[in-house]
Nucleic acid binder design. Structure first.
Length: 824
DNA sequence: CCGTGGTCAGTTTTT
DNA sequence: CTGACCACGG
């Protein structure tokens, strides 16, 4: 990689270290005093506490740009860590806009990507090869499942998922199988079996030349601690380390940062720049760069403990709250001015987050005016709620707001279904971020397993996966036979395939195995050329095409009568398109590089061209994004806060932060909606408004239809808006559903919260038909739908549902307990 | 060894 | 209501 010019075109003025002449003006323009401080402060450690929407990305990018512009740092000396690949891409782009092309020399990536880069270069030091594969959660779960079965750990109540999450937690605390075994109570048989599974899991990974997600971080820390001279190489290289979303770092990541910012150990000779994989570890130190002199790198972290939402995967909020203790002499800058949202939205956000007790007081403010009120809506069902979203999106769009400026959030992925159904019907273009992930589809995993089998033949899991895909008549028995043969001859599973005749299996199966072996060998010849050869950029695309065609995989799908297989073929075509794209962006990319990229992409990353469509995503995925209009849906108890969080220490508080993250994404229009009933697993149940709603001052919310409306008067919802139309609801009738009592109670108790008109207080008054007995054939009257005949009754107790054929409104399902109905 | 049919289970967030 | 998994019968 050639060094890009240090200075941006048009900025060839005399930028000397420390100088701040006119050429910096553009970088410092428009910053408030705190932001300016955050951009220009120089010292060993800086914590930027950046409230939502306070311009932290801008601060971070300008800080980097300034370092480069003033020649305080060479691009290669900068390591910036972001939370997602997408954020990394954006940051690189923004720095490039400020200072030109130099961004290419910097490391701007996620923790995981950075560690992969380091590990690829150093893996050989501790028993791996640089072709190692990365196990995603699905891969490790599959492996753990096998081990759980082998150890009969399920007898002790261990599910694969539980084992996986426990191992992950341990690894995030930098515990390995040995250290766990040392301190575990092995007298407890359950602990012992877990310990054994953990140990086997780790040995399997090592044998397969593979790392799981957590290992990428943990093993890098291990590497640095075990090989101080290696750590020194990177300490010497990275002089400025910047970490975004610091509140979501876990202990392993924290330790990694510590290792990197430590002063040189001085152990071992000054490392020669050694070549690995054709790349130099570090570039010659520029003359103008400050002398490392054994000093630790300067560290800048940006975060907001109010937006810490990943404790469940080991994020430790103490990393940020105790930063000043960890890095003595650290400077702290607070960014509290919000440039994103209107004050109504910020007030709601402040009010909600203020209920978390052990937080540092921090109040976002904005000079953007009050803005529109928050719109609240309570639907009768989740579909009704979705209809509200669709209507509102439509209205906003007709008012000129582009679809791409609107987003719909929900707590759990499963909530997206109802929204999708209605949005499709309403012809609203949308895109789901996340959801069923492309790379988790079976055919994609198969295709990738073929690539892994070539790139990393030690990975038994991958080879076993493709053994009988497409169907070759190779089943369990044969697989075991091959595994045993491999063990006996100290071969890898992959290499055992080269000896079909010695396996003692039938001729047909021998032929099948031989054929697979031949395809893999042929692909290897293309994709893994002898060292020295420079393969064409398209190796991966060609190799994949060859593997899929000569293995018969494609043919099998084409021959199939299953209509789904057509879609699978299309998916594979798309994957091949991805490899072409990869070749374009990485002319020297290897198979391993491609697999790395694929393994580390996340949901939030494929945001690329959501041009012109509404974005649907979970609140987690929404972190770091912003939209003009935001719909937070399903604001119900047991959903947000999620039921499962209730039992976990700190759970409800984390949920509150998540809700806070959701509402602070909105610039001008915030909608909070919920449903009074929600169907989950085909069963309908009653939903209660989230406790977080009552934390928002009532005067900030304009209820189109409040929970009280539905409870005290029965469903208004479907009556006025039923079926398809629903138009005419969005706006004109704004006050139509405002409860009469509201005005009065507001005047009497101005500080009252929205919950005053809520059912929590009114629970007793929720419409309750008791155990109204209905059976097929009964005639009933519904407040909105009129008269109808009961078709059938399903469910038990409070969840009994009547399927009613209304004379004019058609078929409806009604929850008998609360539906506004009477028996005739 | 393959496909079917049936049972069963599990439902939070993700690099 | 889905999807994964298992046991059975061809």
């Amino acid at each position: 990689m050639t060094d890009a010019p240090l200075l941006a075109p048009g900025n060839t003025g005399s930028a000397r270290p420390g100088s701040s002449d006119h050429s910096d003006a553009d970088l410092l323009a428009g910053l408030n005093p705190q932001q300016l401080d955050a951009v220009t402060y120089r010292g060993s450690a800086l914590l930027i506490v950046a409230g939502a929407g306070s311009g932290k990305t801008s601060v971070l990018t300008r800080r980097i740009a300034l370092l480069l512009r003033r020649r305080e740092a060479w691009p290669s000396q900068i390591l910036a860590i972001t939370f997602t690949n997408k954020a990394a891409g954006e940051m690189r782009e923004r720095v490039a806009q400020l200072v030109g092309d130099v961004s290419r020399g910097m490391w701007i990536s996620t923790f995981h990507s950075a560690c992969v880069r380091i590990l690829r270069r150093e893996a050989e030091r501790f028993g791996f090869t640089k072709a190692f594969t990365i196990y995603d959660s699905g891969d490790s779960r599959a492996l753990i499942k096998r081990l759980v079965k082998e150890h009969e750990a399920d007898a002790f109540g261990f599910t694969p998922a539980a084992v996986q999450s426990r191992i992950s937690k341990l690894k995030n605390e930098l515990q390995d199988a040995e250290s766990f075994a040392r301190q575990a109570n092995l007298a407890d048989p359950a602990e012992r079996v877990f310990s054994e599974v953990f140990g086997d899991y780790q040995r399997s990974l090592q044998k397969a030349n593979a790392f799981d997600f957590d290992d990428l971080i943990g093993q890098t820390v291990f590497l640095f601690r075990a090989f101080p001279e290696v750590a020194d190489t990177y300490r010497r290289r990275f002089r400025h380390i910047l970490i975004d979303e610091y509140q979501d770092t876990n202990h392993a990541q924290y330790s990694l940062i510590h290792e990197l910012t430590r002063p040189l150990s001085g152990k071992g000779a000054a490392p020669e720049p050694y070549a690995s994989n054709g790349m130099m570890i570090f570039e010659p130190e520029p003359q103008t760069a400050p002398d490392a002199g054994g000093e630790g790198a300067s560290l800048t972290v940006v975060g907001d403990s109010d937006q810490s939402i990943y404790a469940f995967r080991g994020a430790d909020i103490r990393n940020i709250s105790e930063f000043e203790r960890d890095f003595p002499g650290a400077k702290v800058v607070l960014l509290e001015q919000n440039y994103r949202s209107t004050n109504n939205i910020l007030q709601a956000a402040n009010a909600v987050i203020g209920n978390n007790f052990d937080r540092k007081e921090k109040k976002l403010w904005s000079d953007r005016g009050a803005g529109e009120k928050i719109v609240g809506f309570t639907g009768y069902s989740q579909h009704d709620e979705a209809q509200f979203v669709a209507d509102e999106v439509d209205a906003l769009h007709r008012d000129g707001m582009p679809y791409s400026e609107m987003a719909v959030f929900y707590r759990t992925n499963s909530q997206s279904r109802a929204l999708e159904e209605i949005l499709i019907r309403a012809a609203v273009p949308y895109k789901i971020m996340g959801g069923t992930k492309f790379y988790e589809r079976a055919e994609i995993k198969d295709a990738l397993a073929y690539l892994v089998a070539v790139a990393n033949p030690a990975d038994d899991m991958a080879v076993r996966r493709i053994l009988n895909r497409p169907r070759r008549g190779i089943g369990d028995v044969t697989e075991t036979t091959i595994a045993r043969f491999a063990e006996e001859h100290e071969l890898s599973f992959r290499d055992a395939l080269a000896h079909p005749a010695e396996l003692g299996v039938g001729p047909k199966i021998q032929a099948a195995i031989g054929q697979l072996d031949a395809v893999l060998t042929e692909a290897s010849a293309i994709m893994l050329p002898a060292t020295g050869d420079v393969p064409p950029p398209t190796v991966v695309a060609e190799g994949l095409t060859l593997l899929l065609s000569k293995s018969g995989y494609m043919d099998a799908l084409r021959a199939s009568r299953d209509p789904q297989d057509e879609a699978r073929l299309e998916n594979l075509d798309e994957l091949i398109a991805v490899t072409r794209e990869f070749a374009r962006n990485n002319p020297e990319g290897t198979v391993a590089d491609f697999l790395t990229e694929v393994a580390l992409v996340s949901d939030a990353d494929d945001l690329d061209d959501s041009s012109g469509v509404v974005s649907l995503m979970t609140m987690h995925t929404a972190k770091g994004l912003e939209f003009d209009a935001v719909f937070v849906t399903g604001v119900e108890e047991d959903l947000i806060p999620h039921r499962i969080s209730a039992g976990e220490p700190g759970g409800p508080q984390e949920e509150r932060r998540l809700f806070y993250v959701g509402i602070t994404r909105a610039r001008t229009r915030l909608h909070l909606s919920l449903a009074m009933t929600r169907a989950q697993f085909g069963e309908v149940s009653v939903a209660m408004p989230s406790r977080f709603l009552q934390e928002i001052p009532a005067e900030l919310i304009d209820w189109r239809q409040s929970p009280g409306d539905i409870n005290s008067r029965g469903s208004r919802t479907l009556g006025g808006r039923g079926g398809f139309g629903g138009s005419g609801f969005g706006g004109s009738g704004r006050d139509r559903f405002a409860p009469r009592e509201l005005a009065k109670s507001d005047r009497l108790k101005p500080l009252s919260t929205a919950m005053d008109k809520f059912p929590n207080r009114v629970t007793g008054k929720v419409r309750d038909n008791g155990d109204l007995e209905l059976s097929a054939g009964d005639r009933i009257r519904h407040d909105d739908f009129g008269e109808g005949r009961v078709d059938q009754v399903t469910g038990e107790g409070a969840k009994r549902v009547a399927h009613v054929r209304f004379d004019s409104a058609g078929m409806k399902k009604l929850l008998i307990k609360i539906a506004p109905i009477t028996k005739l």
